[in-house]
Design a binder for these strands. Structure first.
Lengths: 236, 236
DNA sequence: CCTCGAGCTGTTGTATACAACTTGTATACA
DNA sequence: TGTATACAAGTTGTATACAACAGCTCGAGG
Protein backbone atom coordinates (compact mmCIF):
# COMPACT_ATOMS: atom_id res chain seq x y z
CA UNK A 1 0.00 0.00 0.00
CA UNK A 2 2.38 2.66 -1.17
CA UNK A 3 -0.27 4.81 -2.83
CA UNK A 4 -2.68 6.46 -0.43
CA UNK A 5 -4.75 8.00 -3.21
CA UNK A 6 -4.83 7.57 -7.01
CA UNK A 7 -1.75 8.88 -8.73
CA UNK A 8 0.10 9.51 -5.50
CA UNK A 9 2.60 6.72 -5.83
CA UNK A 10 4.29 7.78 -9.03
CA UNK A 11 6.17 11.05 -9.48
CA UNK A 12 6.22 12.25 -13.05
CA UNK A 13 9.46 13.40 -14.62
CA UNK A 14 8.06 16.90 -14.72
CA UNK A 15 7.52 16.69 -10.96
CA UNK A 16 11.05 15.41 -10.51
CA UNK A 17 12.73 18.13 -12.55
CA UNK A 18 10.54 20.75 -10.89
CA UNK A 19 11.43 19.53 -7.42
CA UNK A 20 15.16 19.30 -8.17
CA UNK A 21 15.39 22.76 -9.71
CA UNK A 22 13.28 24.29 -6.97
CA UNK A 23 15.58 22.83 -4.36
CA UNK A 24 18.72 24.05 -6.09
CA UNK A 25 17.32 27.54 -6.49
CA UNK A 26 16.20 27.57 -2.88
CA UNK A 27 19.64 26.49 -1.68
CA UNK A 28 21.29 29.13 -3.82
CA UNK A 29 23.22 26.51 -5.78
CA UNK A 30 21.69 28.01 -8.88
CA UNK A 31 22.43 31.69 -8.42
CA UNK A 32 19.96 34.42 -9.42
CA UNK A 33 20.35 35.24 -13.09
CA UNK A 34 21.68 31.80 -14.08
CA UNK A 35 20.42 30.98 -17.60
CA UNK A 36 18.36 27.80 -17.75
CA UNK A 37 18.45 26.56 -21.31
CA UNK A 38 16.06 23.70 -21.96
CA UNK A 39 18.74 21.67 -23.70
CA UNK A 40 21.14 22.12 -20.82
CA UNK A 41 18.50 20.91 -18.40
CA UNK A 42 17.77 17.96 -20.66
CA UNK A 43 21.41 16.87 -20.45
CA UNK A 44 21.53 17.53 -16.74
CA UNK A 45 18.35 15.72 -15.72
CA UNK A 46 18.03 12.99 -18.34
CA UNK A 47 14.41 13.94 -19.03
CA UNK A 48 13.28 15.17 -22.42
CA UNK A 49 12.31 18.71 -23.29
CA UNK A 50 8.60 18.26 -22.62
CA UNK A 51 8.82 17.66 -18.85
CA UNK A 52 11.67 20.17 -18.61
CA UNK A 53 9.48 22.82 -20.18
CA UNK A 54 6.64 22.00 -17.85
CA UNK A 55 8.93 22.31 -14.84
CA UNK A 56 10.21 25.69 -16.04
CA UNK A 57 6.69 26.98 -16.59
CA UNK A 58 5.69 25.89 -13.11
CA UNK A 59 8.73 27.56 -11.58
CA UNK A 60 7.91 30.73 -13.50
CA UNK A 61 4.39 30.71 -12.06
CA UNK A 62 5.92 30.48 -8.60
CA UNK A 63 8.20 33.41 -9.35
CA UNK A 64 11.41 31.44 -8.98
CA UNK A 65 12.24 31.72 -12.67
CA UNK A 66 11.95 34.60 -15.11
CA UNK A 67 10.67 33.53 -18.50
CA UNK A 68 11.16 35.65 -21.60
CA UNK A 69 9.29 34.40 -24.68
CA UNK A 70 11.53 33.06 -27.43
CA UNK A 71 14.53 33.87 -25.34
CA UNK A 72 14.54 31.48 -22.45
CA UNK A 73 14.51 31.15 -18.70
CA UNK A 74 16.81 32.45 -15.98
CA UNK A 75 16.78 31.99 -12.24
CA UNK A 76 14.81 34.99 -11.00
CA UNK A 77 16.81 37.89 -9.65
CA UNK A 78 16.51 39.27 -6.15
CA UNK A 79 16.48 43.02 -5.62
CA UNK A 80 16.21 45.01 -2.43
CA UNK A 81 12.75 46.08 -3.52
CA UNK A 82 11.68 42.46 -4.05
CA UNK A 83 12.86 41.62 -0.52
CA UNK A 84 10.85 44.51 0.88
CA UNK A 85 7.82 43.44 -1.14
CA UNK A 86 8.16 39.87 0.05
CA UNK A 87 8.27 40.78 3.72
CA UNK A 88 5.54 43.40 3.44
CA UNK A 89 3.30 40.80 1.87
CA UNK A 90 4.18 38.18 4.45
CA UNK A 91 3.39 40.76 7.14
CA UNK A 92 -0.09 40.96 5.69
CA UNK A 93 -0.67 37.21 5.35
CA UNK A 94 1.10 35.43 8.16
CA UNK A 95 -0.43 37.30 11.10
CA UNK A 96 -3.81 36.36 9.65
CA UNK A 97 -2.63 32.77 9.29
CA UNK A 98 -1.42 32.43 12.86
CA UNK A 99 -4.69 33.94 14.00
CA UNK A 100 -6.54 31.14 12.21
CA UNK A 101 -4.10 28.60 13.59
CA UNK A 102 -4.74 29.89 17.12
CA UNK A 103 -8.47 29.49 16.68
CA UNK A 104 -7.99 26.01 15.22
CA UNK A 105 -5.76 24.97 18.13
CA UNK A 106 -8.48 25.94 20.60
CA UNK A 107 -10.55 22.97 19.45
CA UNK A 108 -7.82 20.61 18.24
CA UNK A 109 -5.86 18.76 20.91
CA UNK A 110 -3.45 17.20 18.43
CA UNK A 111 -2.52 20.64 17.14
CA UNK A 112 -1.91 21.86 20.67
CA UNK A 113 0.34 18.84 21.27
CA UNK A 114 2.43 19.69 18.18
CA UNK A 115 2.93 23.31 19.17
CA UNK A 116 3.63 22.39 22.79
CA UNK A 117 6.39 20.06 21.62
CA UNK A 118 7.79 22.81 19.41
CA UNK A 119 7.76 25.25 22.29
CA UNK A 120 9.94 22.82 24.23
CA UNK A 121 12.34 22.50 21.32
CA UNK A 122 12.67 26.26 21.01
CA UNK A 123 13.34 26.47 24.74
CA UNK A 124 16.03 23.80 24.43
CA UNK A 125 17.61 25.66 21.53
CA UNK A 126 18.00 28.86 23.47
CA UNK A 127 20.01 27.06 26.18
CA UNK A 128 22.60 25.70 23.71
CA UNK A 129 25.86 27.55 23.14
CA UNK A 130 25.91 29.64 19.93
CA UNK A 131 27.40 27.73 17.00
CA UNK A 132 26.87 26.96 13.32
CA UNK A 133 25.16 23.74 14.30
CA UNK A 134 22.76 25.53 16.62
CA UNK A 135 21.88 28.05 13.92
CA UNK A 136 21.15 25.26 11.46
CA UNK A 137 19.05 23.39 14.00
CA UNK A 138 17.14 26.55 14.82
CA UNK A 139 16.31 27.42 11.24
CA UNK A 140 15.23 23.85 10.60
CA UNK A 141 12.95 24.10 13.61
CA UNK A 142 11.64 27.52 12.61
CA UNK A 143 10.80 26.05 9.22
CA UNK A 144 8.78 23.29 10.84
CA UNK A 145 7.00 25.91 12.92
CA UNK A 146 6.08 27.89 9.81
CA UNK A 147 4.80 24.78 8.07
CA UNK A 148 2.74 23.86 11.12
CA UNK A 149 1.12 27.29 11.02
CA UNK A 150 0.50 26.92 7.30
CA UNK A 151 -1.01 23.50 7.85
CA UNK A 152 -3.38 24.86 10.49
CA UNK A 153 -4.56 27.69 8.26
CA UNK A 154 -8.16 27.06 7.31
CA UNK A 155 -8.43 29.35 4.31
CA UNK A 156 -7.33 27.51 1.19
CA UNK A 157 -6.14 30.63 -0.69
CA UNK A 158 -4.25 31.96 2.29
CA UNK A 159 -2.58 28.61 2.86
CA UNK A 160 -1.50 28.18 -0.76
CA UNK A 161 -0.25 31.72 -1.10
CA UNK A 162 1.90 31.56 2.02
CA UNK A 163 3.26 28.17 1.00
CA UNK A 164 4.28 29.62 -2.33
CA UNK A 165 6.25 32.38 -0.65
CA UNK A 166 8.35 30.03 1.46
CA UNK A 167 10.93 29.10 -1.20
CA UNK A 168 11.61 32.81 -1.69
CA UNK A 169 12.24 33.30 2.02
CA UNK A 170 14.41 30.20 2.22
CA UNK A 171 16.48 31.31 -0.74
CA UNK A 172 17.04 34.68 0.84
CA UNK A 173 18.39 33.01 3.95
CA UNK A 174 20.72 30.82 1.92
CA UNK A 175 21.96 33.71 -0.20
CA UNK A 176 22.80 35.97 2.70
CA UNK A 177 24.93 35.25 5.72
CA UNK A 178 23.44 34.16 9.01
CA UNK A 179 23.91 36.43 11.99
CA UNK A 180 24.42 34.21 15.06
CA UNK A 181 23.14 36.90 17.40
CA UNK A 182 19.85 36.98 15.51
CA UNK A 183 19.12 33.42 16.64
CA UNK A 184 18.83 34.47 20.28
CA UNK A 185 16.20 37.08 19.55
CA UNK A 186 14.36 34.99 16.99
CA UNK A 187 13.97 32.10 19.42
CA UNK A 188 12.39 34.49 21.89
CA UNK A 189 10.00 35.68 19.20
CA UNK A 190 9.01 32.11 18.40
CA UNK A 191 8.47 31.32 22.07
CA UNK A 192 6.19 34.32 22.28
CA UNK A 193 4.22 33.10 19.26
CA UNK A 194 3.92 29.59 20.70
CA UNK A 195 2.72 30.90 24.02
CA UNK A 196 0.10 33.16 22.50
CA UNK A 197 -1.09 30.43 20.17
CA UNK A 198 -1.42 27.88 22.97
CA UNK A 199 -3.13 30.41 25.23
CA UNK A 200 -5.72 31.06 22.55
CA UNK A 201 -4.76 34.74 22.32
CA UNK A 202 -5.16 35.28 18.58
CA UNK A 203 -4.46 39.01 18.58
CA UNK A 204 -1.27 38.61 20.59
CA UNK A 205 -0.13 35.80 18.29
CA UNK A 206 -0.76 37.97 15.24
CA UNK A 207 1.12 40.88 16.76
CA UNK A 208 4.02 38.64 17.69
CA UNK A 209 4.19 37.32 14.14
CA UNK A 210 4.11 40.83 12.69
CA UNK A 211 6.93 41.99 14.91
CA UNK A 212 8.91 38.84 14.17
CA UNK A 213 8.71 39.56 10.46
CA UNK A 214 9.65 43.20 10.98
CA UNK A 215 12.72 42.15 12.95
CA UNK A 216 13.69 39.54 10.36
CA UNK A 217 13.57 42.08 7.57
CA UNK A 218 15.53 44.62 9.61
CA UNK A 219 18.24 42.05 10.30
CA UNK A 220 18.50 41.08 6.66
CA UNK A 221 18.89 44.70 5.63
CA UNK A 222 21.42 45.39 8.36
CA UNK A 223 23.55 42.43 7.31
CA UNK A 224 23.19 43.31 3.66
CA UNK A 225 24.48 46.82 4.29
CA UNK A 226 27.51 45.34 6.03
CA UNK A 227 28.24 42.39 3.73
CA UNK A 228 26.93 43.17 0.20
CA UNK A 229 25.68 39.67 -0.45
CA UNK A 230 26.64 37.23 -3.16
CA UNK A 231 23.75 36.60 -5.49
CA UNK A 232 21.73 39.74 -4.87
CA UNK A 233 21.12 42.68 -7.11
CA UNK A 234 21.37 45.78 -5.02
CA UNK A 235 19.64 47.92 -7.60
CA UNK A 236 16.32 48.31 -5.81
CA UNK B 1 6.10 49.46 -34.23
CA UNK B 2 3.43 47.25 -32.77
CA UNK B 3 5.74 45.69 -30.20
CA UNK B 4 6.54 47.94 -27.26
CA UNK B 5 8.98 45.45 -25.72
CA UNK B 6 10.65 42.27 -26.99
CA UNK B 7 8.28 39.40 -27.53
CA UNK B 8 5.22 41.53 -26.94
CA UNK B 9 3.91 41.52 -30.47
CA UNK B 10 3.34 37.82 -30.97
CA UNK B 11 0.95 35.74 -28.90
CA UNK B 12 1.93 32.11 -28.72
CA UNK B 13 -0.67 29.41 -29.28
CA UNK B 14 -0.35 28.47 -25.64
CA UNK B 15 -1.24 32.07 -24.73
CA UNK B 16 -4.18 31.95 -27.10
CA UNK B 17 -5.64 28.70 -25.81
CA UNK B 18 -5.06 29.86 -22.24
CA UNK B 19 -6.84 33.14 -22.84
CA UNK B 20 -9.78 31.53 -24.64
CA UNK B 21 -10.35 28.86 -22.01
CA UNK B 22 -9.96 31.36 -19.18
CA UNK B 23 -12.58 33.57 -20.75
CA UNK B 24 -15.03 30.73 -21.28
CA UNK B 25 -14.60 29.51 -17.72
CA UNK B 26 -15.02 33.05 -16.42
CA UNK B 27 -18.21 33.54 -18.41
CA UNK B 28 -19.58 30.23 -17.18
CA UNK B 29 -19.81 28.87 -20.71
CA UNK B 30 -17.69 26.00 -19.52
CA UNK B 31 -19.54 24.90 -16.40
CA UNK B 32 -17.72 23.74 -13.27
CA UNK B 33 -16.89 20.06 -13.53
CA UNK B 34 -16.74 20.01 -17.33
CA UNK B 35 -14.05 17.52 -18.42
CA UNK B 36 -11.31 19.08 -20.52
CA UNK B 37 -9.69 16.31 -22.51
CA UNK B 38 -6.57 17.41 -24.33
CA UNK B 39 -7.70 15.84 -27.57
CA UNK B 40 -11.03 17.60 -27.41
CA UNK B 41 -9.29 20.92 -26.89
CA UNK B 42 -6.98 20.13 -29.80
CA UNK B 43 -9.99 19.72 -32.09
CA UNK B 44 -11.67 22.78 -30.66
CA UNK B 45 -8.75 25.18 -30.84
CA UNK B 46 -6.74 23.90 -33.77
CA UNK B 47 -3.54 23.93 -31.73
CA UNK B 48 -1.58 20.78 -31.00
CA UNK B 49 -1.36 19.00 -27.68
CA UNK B 50 1.79 20.79 -26.52
CA UNK B 51 0.33 24.30 -26.22
CA UNK B 52 -2.96 22.86 -25.00
CA UNK B 53 -1.16 21.10 -22.18
CA UNK B 54 0.69 24.26 -21.28
CA UNK B 55 -2.56 26.22 -21.15
CA UNK B 56 -4.17 23.60 -18.91
CA UNK B 57 -1.20 23.61 -16.55
CA UNK B 58 -1.35 27.38 -16.31
CA UNK B 59 -5.08 27.33 -15.60
CA UNK B 60 -4.50 24.71 -12.93
CA UNK B 61 -1.93 26.96 -11.27
CA UNK B 62 -4.54 29.72 -11.23
CA UNK B 63 -7.08 27.39 -9.65
CA UNK B 64 -9.51 27.53 -12.57
CA UNK B 65 -8.90 23.91 -13.50
CA UNK B 66 -8.51 20.79 -11.38
CA UNK B 67 -5.79 18.50 -12.66
CA UNK B 68 -5.63 14.84 -11.68
CA UNK B 69 -2.43 13.07 -12.79
CA UNK B 70 -2.97 10.47 -15.50
CA UNK B 71 -6.65 11.21 -15.42
CA UNK B 72 -7.14 14.62 -16.87
CA UNK B 73 -8.45 18.11 -16.29
CA UNK B 74 -11.87 19.44 -15.33
CA UNK B 75 -13.16 22.94 -14.86
CA UNK B 76 -12.72 23.53 -11.14
CA UNK B 77 -15.79 23.17 -8.98
CA UNK B 78 -17.26 25.90 -6.84
CA UNK B 79 -18.47 25.07 -3.35
CA UNK B 80 -20.02 27.31 -0.72
CA UNK B 81 -16.84 26.91 1.29
CA UNK B 82 -14.71 28.00 -1.65
CA UNK B 83 -16.85 31.12 -2.04
CA UNK B 84 -16.41 31.93 1.64
CA UNK B 85 -12.66 31.34 1.36
CA UNK B 86 -12.43 33.56 -1.69
CA UNK B 87 -14.17 36.50 -0.07
CA UNK B 88 -12.38 36.08 3.25
CA UNK B 89 -9.09 36.19 1.41
CA UNK B 90 -10.13 39.18 -0.66
CA UNK B 91 -11.15 40.91 2.56
CA UNK B 92 -7.59 40.50 3.72
CA UNK B 93 -5.92 41.66 0.51
CA UNK B 94 -8.08 44.32 -1.11
CA UNK B 95 -8.35 46.73 1.82
CA UNK B 96 -4.55 46.69 1.92
CA UNK B 97 -4.48 47.29 -1.82
CA UNK B 98 -6.81 50.27 -1.77
CA UNK B 99 -4.77 51.67 1.09
CA UNK B 100 -1.69 51.56 -1.13
CA UNK B 101 -3.67 53.00 -4.02
CA UNK B 102 -4.81 55.87 -1.83
CA UNK B 103 -1.24 56.66 -0.85
CA UNK B 104 -0.15 56.44 -4.49
CA UNK B 105 -2.93 58.79 -5.60
CA UNK B 106 -1.73 61.42 -3.15
CA UNK B 107 1.36 62.00 -5.29
CA UNK B 108 0.04 60.97 -8.71
CA UNK B 109 -2.19 63.47 -10.49
CA UNK B 110 -2.94 61.09 -13.36
CA UNK B 111 -4.22 58.49 -10.93
CA UNK B 112 -6.45 61.08 -9.26
CA UNK B 113 -7.80 62.03 -12.67
CA UNK B 114 -8.72 58.39 -13.40
CA UNK B 115 -10.54 57.89 -10.12
CA UNK B 116 -12.29 61.26 -10.39
CA UNK B 117 -13.62 60.25 -13.79
CA UNK B 118 -14.79 56.94 -12.37
CA UNK B 119 -16.52 58.66 -9.52
CA UNK B 120 -18.53 60.64 -12.07
CA UNK B 121 -19.44 57.50 -13.95
CA UNK B 122 -20.66 55.82 -10.77
CA UNK B 123 -22.72 58.91 -9.98
CA UNK B 124 -24.22 58.80 -13.47
CA UNK B 125 -25.05 55.12 -13.06
CA UNK B 126 -27.03 55.65 -9.90
CA UNK B 127 -29.32 58.13 -11.64
CA UNK B 128 -30.28 55.69 -14.40
CA UNK B 129 -33.45 53.65 -14.12
CA UNK B 130 -32.86 50.04 -13.03
CA UNK B 131 -32.53 47.64 -15.95
CA UNK B 132 -30.47 44.77 -17.27
CA UNK B 133 -28.42 47.23 -19.27
CA UNK B 134 -27.68 49.36 -16.25
CA UNK B 135 -26.58 46.30 -14.28
CA UNK B 136 -24.24 45.26 -17.06
CA UNK B 137 -22.82 48.76 -17.35
CA UNK B 138 -22.32 48.94 -13.61
CA UNK B 139 -20.45 45.65 -13.35
CA UNK B 140 -18.27 46.61 -16.28
CA UNK B 141 -17.48 49.86 -14.50
CA UNK B 142 -16.88 48.13 -11.17
CA UNK B 143 -14.45 45.83 -12.95
CA UNK B 144 -12.52 48.82 -14.28
CA UNK B 145 -12.46 50.26 -10.78
CA UNK B 146 -11.01 47.05 -9.38
CA UNK B 147 -8.36 46.92 -12.07
CA UNK B 148 -7.45 50.53 -11.42
CA UNK B 149 -6.93 49.71 -7.76
CA UNK B 150 -4.87 46.67 -8.69
CA UNK B 151 -2.80 48.77 -11.06
CA UNK B 152 -2.09 51.32 -8.35
CA UNK B 153 -0.96 48.66 -5.90
CA UNK B 154 2.76 49.02 -5.31
CA UNK B 155 3.51 45.61 -3.84
CA UNK B 156 4.23 43.15 -6.62
CA UNK B 157 3.03 40.06 -4.72
CA UNK B 158 -0.14 41.74 -3.55
CA UNK B 159 -0.90 42.96 -7.06
CA UNK B 160 -0.36 39.55 -8.68
CA UNK B 161 -2.32 37.68 -6.06
CA UNK B 162 -5.37 39.94 -6.29
CA UNK B 163 -5.24 39.83 -10.08
CA UNK B 164 -5.26 36.05 -9.94
CA UNK B 165 -8.42 36.06 -7.83
CA UNK B 166 -10.41 38.19 -10.23
CA UNK B 167 -11.42 35.44 -12.66
CA UNK B 168 -12.86 33.50 -9.72
CA UNK B 169 -14.96 36.47 -8.66
CA UNK B 170 -16.10 37.14 -12.20
CA UNK B 171 -17.09 33.54 -12.69
CA UNK B 172 -19.13 33.62 -9.53
CA UNK B 173 -21.03 36.61 -10.80
CA UNK B 174 -21.74 34.93 -14.11
CA UNK B 175 -22.81 31.67 -12.51
CA UNK B 176 -25.28 33.23 -10.11
CA UNK B 177 -28.13 35.58 -10.85
CA UNK B 178 -27.78 39.33 -10.54
CA UNK B 179 -29.93 41.07 -7.99
CA UNK B 180 -30.96 44.47 -9.46
CA UNK B 181 -31.45 45.99 -6.02
CA UNK B 182 -27.86 45.16 -5.13
CA UNK B 183 -26.67 47.63 -7.80
CA UNK B 184 -28.09 50.59 -5.90
CA UNK B 185 -26.19 49.76 -2.74
CA UNK B 186 -23.02 48.72 -4.51
CA UNK B 187 -22.83 52.00 -6.39
CA UNK B 188 -23.01 53.82 -3.07
CA UNK B 189 -20.21 51.65 -1.73
CA UNK B 190 -18.05 52.46 -4.74
CA UNK B 191 -18.74 56.17 -4.40
CA UNK B 192 -17.62 55.94 -0.79
CA UNK B 193 -14.41 54.22 -1.84
CA UNK B 194 -13.72 56.80 -4.54
CA UNK B 195 -14.30 59.66 -2.13
CA UNK B 196 -12.01 58.22 0.52
CA UNK B 197 -9.32 57.42 -2.00
CA UNK B 198 -9.40 60.89 -3.52
CA UNK B 199 -9.45 62.52 -0.08
CA UNK B 200 -6.33 60.60 0.85
CA UNK B 201 -8.10 58.86 3.73
CA UNK B 202 -6.48 55.44 3.50
CA UNK B 203 -8.12 53.92 6.58
CA UNK B 204 -11.58 55.00 5.49
CA UNK B 205 -10.94 53.58 2.02
CA UNK B 206 -9.83 50.28 3.49
CA UNK B 207 -12.86 50.11 5.75
CA UNK B 208 -15.17 50.92 2.85
CA UNK B 209 -13.59 48.16 0.79
CA UNK B 210 -13.93 45.65 3.63
CA UNK B 211 -17.59 46.47 4.10
CA UNK B 212 -18.19 46.36 0.37
CA UNK B 213 -16.80 42.83 0.24
CA UNK B 214 -18.83 41.77 3.26
CA UNK B 215 -21.99 43.05 1.60
CA UNK B 216 -21.15 41.38 -1.69
CA UNK B 217 -20.69 38.02 -0.02
CA UNK B 218 -23.89 38.43 1.97
CA UNK B 219 -25.83 39.19 -1.20
CA UNK B 220 -24.42 36.20 -3.01
CA UNK B 221 -25.37 33.89 -0.16
CA UNK B 222 -28.82 35.41 0.13
CA UNK B 223 -29.48 34.93 -3.57
CA UNK B 224 -28.04 31.44 -3.48
CA UNK B 225 -30.40 30.45 -0.68
CA UNK B 226 -33.31 31.68 -2.76
CA UNK B 227 -32.25 30.44 -6.20
CA UNK B 228 -29.97 27.37 -5.83
CA UNK B 229 -27.62 28.34 -8.62
CA UNK B 230 -26.80 26.54 -11.82
CA UNK B 231 -23.18 25.46 -11.81
CA UNK B 232 -22.51 25.44 -8.10
CA UNK B 233 -21.90 22.56 -5.76
CA UNK B 234 -23.80 23.24 -2.59
CA UNK B 235 -21.86 20.65 -0.65
CA UNK B 236 -19.72 23.06 1.36
C1' DC C 1 -26.16 -13.90 -8.23
C1' DC C 2 -21.77 -12.14 -7.23
C1' DT C 3 -16.72 -11.74 -7.78
C1' DC C 4 -12.67 -11.59 -10.31
C1' DG C 5 -9.68 -10.91 -14.14
C1' DA C 6 -8.32 -10.41 -19.12
C1' DG C 7 -8.43 -7.47 -22.65
C1' DC C 8 -9.98 -3.33 -24.92
C1' DT C 9 -10.42 1.67 -25.35
C1' DG C 10 -9.24 6.05 -24.50
C1' DT C 11 -6.56 8.97 -21.83
C1' DT C 12 -2.28 11.29 -20.25
C1' DG C 13 3.07 11.18 -19.99
C1' DT C 14 7.21 11.36 -22.75
C1' DA C 15 10.41 11.68 -26.57
C1' DT C 16 11.73 13.71 -30.66
C1' DA C 17 11.59 15.97 -35.24
C1' DC C 18 10.70 20.21 -37.46
C1' DA C 19 9.58 25.29 -37.86
C1' DA C 20 10.18 29.98 -36.50
C1' DC C 21 12.58 33.28 -34.29
C1' DT C 22 16.54 35.89 -31.87
C1' DT C 23 21.19 37.06 -31.34
C1' DG C 24 25.92 37.60 -32.46
C1' DT C 25 29.39 37.85 -36.05
C1' DA C 26 31.50 38.88 -40.14
C1' DT C 27 31.56 41.54 -44.12
C1' DA C 28 30.49 45.25 -47.38
C1' DC C 29 29.90 49.98 -47.84
C1' DA C 30 29.47 55.06 -46.90
C1' DT D 1 35.84 54.60 -38.60
C1' DG D 2 31.08 53.83 -38.07
C1' DT D 3 26.95 51.71 -39.84
C1' DA D 4 24.04 48.59 -42.09
C1' DT D 5 23.13 44.08 -43.75
C1' DA D 6 23.33 39.22 -44.58
C1' DC D 7 24.53 34.99 -42.72
C1' DA D 8 25.08 31.39 -39.17
C1' DA D 9 24.40 29.26 -34.79
C1' DG D 10 21.59 28.26 -31.19
C1' DT D 11 17.33 28.86 -28.91
C1' DT D 12 12.45 28.31 -28.07
C1' DG D 13 7.58 27.15 -30.09
C1' DT D 14 4.95 23.48 -32.15
C1' DA D 15 3.48 19.10 -34.01
C1' DT D 16 3.30 14.39 -33.69
C1' DA D 17 4.53 9.53 -32.72
C1' DC D 18 5.05 6.25 -29.18
C1' DA D 19 4.74 4.36 -24.31
C1' DA D 20 2.44 3.69 -20.06
C1' DC D 21 -1.41 3.79 -17.42
C1' DA D 22 -6.69 4.10 -15.74
C1' DG D 23 -11.34 2.71 -16.32
C1' DC D 24 -14.54 -0.26 -18.46
C1' DT D 25 -16.86 -4.18 -20.57
C1' DC D 26 -17.65 -8.75 -20.75
C1' DG D 27 -17.22 -13.30 -19.79
C1' DA D 28 -15.65 -17.26 -16.76
C1' DG D 29 -15.79 -19.33 -12.47
C1' DG D 30 -17.35 -19.81 -7.78
Amino acid sequence: MSAAFPGAGAESKADLVHRQLKEEIELGELAPGTPLSELWLVERTGASRTPVREALRRLAAEGLVDLVPRQGARVSRVSLQSVRDLFDFRSLLEPAAIRQATEAAATDAELRRVFTAMRSEFARTVRRAPSQARSRAFYELADRFDWAVIGATRNEHLRRTIAELRPHTARLRNLSHVDPRRVEVSVAEHLRMCDALLAGEADEAATAMAEHLTQSLATIFRNLARAPADGLDLLG
